[in-house]
């Protein structure tokens, strides 16, 4: 079974189970593992209070401050995204100046612009190709809700295709608005801790 002998109260459950009989061997194993898992969880929770919390702090800090966006500029919002990257509104202060062309190396997808029905499968594919942990900022009105366009060809909100973490409104949002959205994303990464990835 591969279960190592543990100190503590396993002997009680073992004795309780021994009386059940051979026919319940599968059930025994199942219950034993479940009991073991509960014990492990309790131990981990206790250990986390003491030692994982600082590790978590470092990990979330590192994840926050070096997010690498993927190049996913679609329309007008992409130009404001480029303005954010440029020197006047420097996104490098946030550690994000390195826009990766390959989604495999990216953490953040800033969907900037209107997503047409022809582009939606491509969007999903790029999102799937990104490795965990990954976040999505929906930049602009068109990405958040379809924006000015409500017709046969525009997806009414990119959250119909990918899960979105932060919505930034505007048509197009000013670079300061995008930076505000990025700071909200920082808060989110902080709150999530190590649950992601």
């Amino acid at each position: 079974m591969g279960v190592a002998a543990q100190p503590g109260g396993f002997q009680d459950s073992d004795r309780a189970l021994q009386g059940a009989g051979e026919a319940q061997a599968g059930l025994e194993e199942d219950v034993r593992e479940r009991v073991l898992t509960t014990r492990l969880e309790t131990m981990l929770k206790w250990a986390k209070q003491v030692s994982i919390r600082p590790v978590e702090k470092v990990v979330t800090w590192a994840r926050q401050r070096s997010v690498w966006p993927a190049t996913f500029g679609l329309a007008c919002c992409a130009i404001e995204m480029m303005s954010t990257v440029a020197s006047d509104f420097d996104i490098a202060r946030f550690g994000m100046e390195l826009f990766r062309a390959s989604p495999r190396q990216a953490d953040l997808m800033i969907v900037s612009g209107r997503v047409s029905r022809k582009m939606a499968p491509v969007l999903r594919q790029i999102y799937d190709q990104m490795a965990e942990p990954k976040w999505v900022i929906s930049m602009g009105a068109c990405a958040s809700c379809g924006g000015v366009f409500n017709n046969y060809t525009i997806v009414q909100g990119v959250d119909r295709v990918v899960p979105v973490d932060v919505y930034v409104g505007g048509c197009p949002p000013r670079p300061e608005a995008l930076l505000n959205g990025i700071m909200k994303l920082y808060d989110k990464i902080q709150r999530e801790g190590m649950k992601k990835g």
Partner: peptide, 23 residues
């Protein structure tokens, strides 16, 4: 092409001239 097709020409037929200008 066509990955950014927005249907602006069709939308304009449903909007007044001033509203179509903003698109």
């Amino acid at each position: 092409i066509g990955y950014l097709h927005t249907g602006i020409e069709k939308e304009a037929e449903y909007k007044t001239y001033n509203k179509a200008l903003t698109m």
